[in-house]
C-alpha cells in the first residue's frame, strides 16, 4: 500500500512539473474561467429579475457554475496527455518497471485533481472580488471545491478511457467538444431548473455536471439542505469512481494489445 502511494506520488510530481512548465497552459487555464465569469456575469446580469428566479445577485448564482465548468474543461483533455505518453514511450517505460500499475493513471488523476482544486479555488476568490457572497462560508466553499474536483476527475477518467480505447487525438477532442458544452447547458449552471423546459430538467437529473453544480451551489448558500448536498456531491463522486474504472479497464485492454 505504501509502495503504491509512493509510486503514485512520484508520477503525480512528474505530471505537475510538466503542467507548470507550460506557461501558456497555466495562463489560459486561469484566463479562460475569468473571461467566462466576467462575460456571462455581464451578459445574463438581469436574469435574476425574471419572475420565479428569486432575485439575489447573478454573479453569486453564476460563480459555482463557472467553478464547475472550469473543472470540466480543465480535465477534458487529460486523455491527450496519456496519448502523448504512449507516443513517446513514457508509459511503456513505466510498464517494464516495477511501478505499481495503478500508479500510472492514478498519478495523472491525482495531478488533475490538484490542478482543478487550485484553479477552482482561484475562481472562487475572483467571484468574491466581482461581488459574489458565499453565505455557506469556508465549509460551503470546500464542499463546492470537492464537488468540482470530483467532476474533474470523472471527466478526466472518461477522457483517458476514450484516449486509450481509440488511441486518437481527434477522438478525444471530438468527444470533449461534443459532450462538455451540451452537458453544461443541460444543467442548472446558468438558469434555475424551475425555469427551464421539462425535458431539460429531466436530463439534468442524470447529468453529472448538474449534480456537481447543484450540490456545490447548495452548500455555498445560507442554511443549505444537507441532504440535497450529500446526494448530489455523492453522485458526482460515484461518477468519478465509475469513469476511473472505465479508464483502468481501457488501460488493461491497451496492455493486453501490446
Amino acid at each position: 500500500m505504501t509502495t503504491a502511494l509512493a509510486h503514485t506520488w512520484y508520477v503525480t510530481q512528474r505530471y505537475s512539473r510538466t503542467a507548470i512548465r507550460q506557461p501558456i497552459w497555466v495562463l489560459s487555464a486561469l484566463l479562460q474561467p475569468i473571461i467566462w465569469l466576467v462575460l456571462f456575469g455581464a451578459l445574463f446580469k438581469r436574469i435574476v429579475e425574471i419572475p420565479g428566479f428569486g432575485g439575489g445577485s447573478y454573479i453569486g448564482f453564476l460563480t459555482p457554475a463557472i467553478v464547475v465548468m472550469t473543472a470540466m474543461f480543465s480535465a477534458g483533455l487529460c486523455g491527450m496527455t496519456v496519448l502523448a505518453d504512449l507516443d513517446t514511450g513514457v508509459i511503456d517505460r513505466m510498464l517494464v518497471s516495477p511501478v505499481r500499475r495503478g500508479a500510472i493513471l492514478g498519478g495523472l488523476l491525482v495531478e488533475q485533481a490538484a490542478v482543478v482544486f487550485v484553479q477552482c479555488g482561484i475562481i472562487l476568490v475572483l467571484g468574491l472580488v466581482l461581488g459574489a457572497r458565499y453565505s455557506g462560508g469556508p465549509l460551503g466553499a470546500l464542499v463546492l471545491l470537492v464537488a468540482a474536483t470530483a467532476l474533474g476527475v470523472g471527466i478526466a477518467g472518461l477522457s483517458n478511457a476514450v484516449a486509450l480505447t481509440t488511441r486518437r487525438r481527434e477522438s478525444v477532442i471530438g468527444v470533449v467538444q461534443l459532450l462538455l458544452m451540451p452537458l453544461t447547458y443541460l444543467s442548472s449552471a446558468f438558469m434555475k431548473l424551475e425555469l427551464v423546459p421539462g425535458w431539460i430538467r429531466d436530463i439534468a437529473r442524470v447529468n453529472p455536471v448538474n449534480w456537481a453544480v447543484s450540490g456545490g451551489r447548495e452548500a455555498l448558500a445560507g442554511n443549505p439542505q444537507w441532504g440535497h448536498v450529500f446526494l448530489n456531491v455523492g453522485l458526482t463522486v460515484a461518477f468519478a469512481v465509475v469513469t476511473t474504472l472505465l479508464g483502468t479497464a481501457a488501460f488493461g485492454a491497451y496492455r493486453r494489445s501490446v
Partner: peptide, 23 residues
C-alpha cells in the same frame, strides 16, 4: 526501447530521479 520514454519536459536529472525512485 525504440520509443525512448524520456520525458521531454523534464531535465536529465528529473528523468533519472523519477526512474530511480520507481525502482
Amino acid at each position: 526501447a525504440q520509443r525512448s520514454g524520456v520525458d521531454g519536459a523534464s531535465t536529465a536529472v528529473e528523468n533519472l530521479q523519477l526512474q530511480g525512485r520507481i525502482y
